[in-house]
Every structure is written in structure tokens, then in C-alpha cells.
Design a protein around this nucleic acid. Structure first.
Lengths: 225, 225
DNA sequence: GTCTATAGAACGATAGAC
DNA sequence: GTCTATCGTTCTATAGAC
């Protein structure tokens, strides 16, 4: 019994983690089809068979990687939303406040990952263009929950707007957010160097403002709180 | 000499065109890496060697397909921009007018392609997430021209805004447009069926409004014409 | 858990007959 | 222009030694 406890003093979980990290990097660079187990093994300095041992298949590896990256962001969103609601007690939240809780968590993660060699922005962007069925299913599961929560919150802020109108513009807001994240690496090029792509905070702030105004003024009869 | 003229009474250009069409469809579905010459040949009911014969390589085939789809849209944009400028003689154009010329041409093409089996929206979206080098280069070439033109036009409309500010929000506007196009097929799902993804016109109109307001009100001191 | 070795299939590209 | 046949490469996945 004691032996069982002492066993694995150094659990050597590293390989698994390295595989996940390499998968994230290569997936965001080359997409699902461009990612090969060989490239993952090489990048992670692991053996070719390691990925199949730890995850069973290429599909399972990519899914696990996505799950590990996306879930903390969604949790943080809900946390921030709760915080804002507690601070404002019974008042409906402002549009800007709401979208800040949606956009900032992913901005924070992108800032964190800015120094690493894998851009979270590009990873998220890619998962939303990849039509591989299991990725679609995963996003549906991840996102339909949180979309309902934000729809409800925005309905409180714009009580005179029909659900459909809120849906339309929430859809546009989310699409804009994803587009901005996906295009972020092009910013410096696009602006001929005038805007720096390293200032993630500035991008997030501008994006939040952009989206809030697009949402509010796009509505038929805007009645912001 | 006469023989030379009579030759090719039925030029049999079909195969080439079918290859292009199949490439567009498969590229937008599976991305560059997911597209195989075998799948293209099958889809186009052509021979496996046909693609290499007509285009030389997989790269060249995809590039030619992209060129044929993107260039007419950009031309239409410039046409519409000229029309608006002629109608307004010397006045600077409104933001909404400007973004309409940017967004409507691609909306028209998407509407046209709605009945075909290849969604232009998804194709465009994909080219903007694929980081394959030659696609990046192509977009740089296609887009840097037209970005400058729109930047100049917006600077006339907002003469008090520094170039950097215009760049920032033009970038966000373009990113939003691309995001909305990319996410369009998710609309019906996202809204639990309340919004119909077949109404491309409605999407384009809402998007144009959304982007115009985001652009205008996002600026530090907005002074729309 | 990590390795080597390899099976079995699919890939891009080309040569050469028609 | 279109075809068949095939080369050389690379892929996912697995079997089995350590």
C-alpha cells in the first residue's frame, strides 16, 4: 500500500502538457488538417506514438486542447458578469459593462499568451472557421450556454427590444469580436506600422467601445440604460 | 489558315472551369490543407492529372481560384465609390455611404452564390484565417490597395481625426465585416431559429449600420458629415 | 510511459500513351 | 486535353520491446 503511495514521486505529466501546448500552437498556425501528429511530436520533443498513447487519436488531442483553453475564459466571463451585477445591485447593466465582461477575459488571456509562441487570438479565430464537425459541435456546446446568458442580460438593459433584435445584434457583436481577434495580427501591416499589434489592451478597449456602439445604435429604437 | 480558325469549334474550356469551381467549394469547406487534388478531381468529374496540367500545381490552382472570386468584388467596390462621389460632387461622403460601397458588393456576390453549393462568405472567411504564406501575400496585394483608398475617403469625412485613429477603426470595421461573413452560417443556430441566415440582404444592411456606428462613435471626437 | 518499427492508406506530381 | 500508371513522400495508427 505504501509503495502505491510513494510510486510516481515525479508524476512526469510533462509530456502530456507539452503535447497539448504543441497542438495549440500548430493548430492555430495550420488548422486541423494542417496539424500532423508528427509535427506535434517534433514540436513537443516527444515521441510520435506519445499522442496516440495519451489521447487515443488526433481528434481527441485537439478537442482536449480546445477544452483546456476555452473553458477558463468562459468561467471568467461569468465571474465578471456576476461581479458587475453585484456592484449594480438591481439596476440593469450598461451595454459597455456587459460587453466588457464578454471581451476582456479573452483579452487577458491573449495578453498572457503574447510572449509565448502561440497566439490565443489566432487559435480562437481558427476554431471559428474550421468546419470540422466535432469542432462545430464543441462550439455549439460551449457557446450556446453563454449566448443565452448574454442575451438575457442585454434584454434587461433594452427591455423594449424584441428578442430577435437583441439576437441579431448580439450575433453581430460576437462576430465582430471574433473577426477583430482573428485579424489582430494583421493590424500592424494593415496600418502601415501606425498601430502596434502588441498593444492588446488598446485593441480590447477600442473593440469593446466599437461593439457597444454598434450594438446600441444599430437597434431600431435604442434605449440604453 | 482556315483550319486554324475553324479549330476548336467547342473550345472545351469546361474542365478548367469545373476545376476552379470544385476548388472553391472544397477550399471553403476544408481549407488549403484539407483540399486534395484527388478530391478536386472527383468533385469536378475530371481526371487526377487535369489540375496539374491546367495550373501546374496545387498552389497555383488555389491562387487562381481566389483571384477570380476576389477581383470582381474589389472592382465593384471602386465602381460604387466612384458613383457615390459623382452623385455628391464635392461633398465628403457619409460614413454609411462609404461602408455601403465596401460591404454591399460582397453581399451581392454572397446572395448570388446562395443557391450554389459553395458559400462565398465561408470562402472569404477562410482565406482570412489561413496563414499559409502565399495566401497572406495575395491578400496583402489585394487589400493594401483598397485599404488606402478607403482610408483616404474616411479621412475626408473626418478631417479632424489623425490618420492613426482612422486606421484603427477602419481595421475594426473590416475585421467586423469579415467576422460577420464568417459567422453568418451560424446565425440561425445562434439565434435558435429567430433569425434566418437566408436573408443575406438583411444581414448586409444591419452589418453596414453596425459598422458605421461602431466606427463613428468609437472615434475620440466624432464629427460625422 | 516511452521508444522503434512498420503497416496501410492518401498525398502531390509526373511520364507517356492516346 | 485527357487518360492510366506509378514514383517518392507523408500521413494516422498500432504492435511490441524496454
Amino acid at each position: 500500500m505504501i509503495a502505491t503511495v510513494i510510486k510516481n514521486p515525479k508524476p512526469k505529466l510533462e509530456t502530456r502538457a507539452r503535447l497539448i501546448e504543441a497542438t495549440a500552437r500548430l493548430f492555430s498556425l495550420h488548422g486541423y488538417n494542417g496539424l500532423t501528429l508528427r509535427s506535434v511530436a517534433k514540436e513537443a520533443k516527444a515521441n510520435l506514438a506519445a499522442a496516440n498513447y495519451h489521447f487515443g487519436s488526433k481528434d481527441a488531442l485537439v478537442l482536449e486542447m480546445l477544452r483546456e483553453r476555452i473553458q477558463p475564459i468562459n468561467q471568467r466571463r461569468l465571474e465578471l458578469l456576476e461581479e458587475e451585477k453585484n456592484n449594480n445591485s438591481n439596476l440593469p447593466l450598461g451595454v459597455f459593462q456587459i460587453f466588457r465582461t464578454l471581451i476582456h477575459p479573452i483579452g487577458e488571456e491573449i495578453s498572457k499568451s503574447a510572449n509565448s509562441r502561440c497566439s490565443l487570438a489566432q487559435l480562437v479565430a481558427r476554431t471559428f472557421t474550421e468546419p470540422t464537425e466535432f469542432i462545430e459541435r464543441m462550439h455549439h456546446r460551449f457557446f450556446s450556454q453563454i449566448a443565452e446568458i448574454y442575451h438575457r442580460e442585454l434584454s434587461l438593459t433594452f427591455p423594449n427590444q424584441p428578442a430577435k433584435e437583441i439576437y441579431w445584434h448580439l450575433h453581430l457583436a460576437v462576430a465582430s469580436m471574433l473577426g477583430a481577434l482573428a485579424q489582430h495580427r494583421r493590424l500592424e501591416d494593415f496600418t502601415k506600422g501606425m498601430c502596434n499589434e502588441n498593444q492588446v489592451d488598446e485593441m480590447i478597449n477600442r473593440l469593446t467601445k466599437f461593439v457597444s456602439h454598434g450594438f446600441t445604435h444599430g437597434l431600431r429604437n435604442s434605449s440604453p440604460s
